[in-house]
Simulated assay, not measured.
Amino acid sequence: MDLPIIVGIDGSEPSLRAVDWAADEAALRGAGLRLVYASLWERYEGACLAHDLGKPSEEVMAQDIVDTAERRAHRRQPGVKVTTDLLPEEPEYALVRESRTALAVVVGCRGRSGLTETLLGSVSVMVAGHAHCPVIVLRGSHDNQARSGVRGRILLGVGEKPAGTAAVRFAVEEALLRGVPLEAVRAWRRPVHETTGHPLIVGEPAHLYEQHAVEALEEALRDVPEGLQVQRRTVEARARDALLAASREADLLVVGARRRHGHFGLQLGRVTHGVLHHAACPVAVVPEPA
Rank of each mutant, 00 (worst) to 15 (best):
R189A: 11
I65L: 05
R151A: 13
V66A: 15
V60N: 00
V96Q: 06
G274V: 06
G149N: 09
I65W: 02
G269E: 09
V19N: 06
R100P: 07
V158P: 01
H273S: 15
Q77D: 02
E174H: 08
V19Q: 01
A73R: 02
L49M: 07
H277Y: 13
V168G: 00
L208D: 03
E98S: 10
A167C: 09
G11R: 04
H74K: 13
A175N: 13
A27W: 02
P78D: 10
W21G: 04
G54R: 01
Y93R: 06
A26M: 04
Q63V: 13
P88E: 04
L182M: 07
D143P: 04
T196N: 07
G108S: 07
E45I: 09
S113F: 05
H193A: 15
E219Q: 15
P134R: 02
R75W: 08
L40M: 14
A250M: 14
A163D: 14
E25P: 00
V192T: 15
A184N: 06
R17S: 10
R190D: 14
P289S: 02
L40E: 08
D143A: 09
Y37C: 05
A27C: 02
H193N: 15
E90C: 01
A245D: 14
E160W: 05
L119E: 03
G179R: 03
A23N: 06
E90D: 07
L208S: 02
A279F: 06
K55N: 05
L87Q: 00
V36S: 03
A94H: 01
P225D: 03
P162Q: 08
A104L: 05
R259Y: 07
E249Q: 15
V123E: 00
E288F: 00
T101N: 15
V158S: 02
A31L: 04
G54F: 01
W188P: 11
G262F: 14
V150R: 10
R190A: 10
V96G: 08
V275L: 12
N144G: 12
H212P: 03
I5Y: 04
V137T: 10
R153H: 06
I65S: 04
T234F: 03
E210Y: 09
L86C: 13
H74M: 11
V19S: 06
R248P: 03
A175I: 15
G256P: 03
R240I: 04
H51E: 12
V172G: 08
Q231Y: 11
A175T: 11
A206S: 11
G159W: 01
E204C: 08
D143Y: 13
V60C: 00
P56C: 04
T196F: 13
A239L: 11
P181H: 10
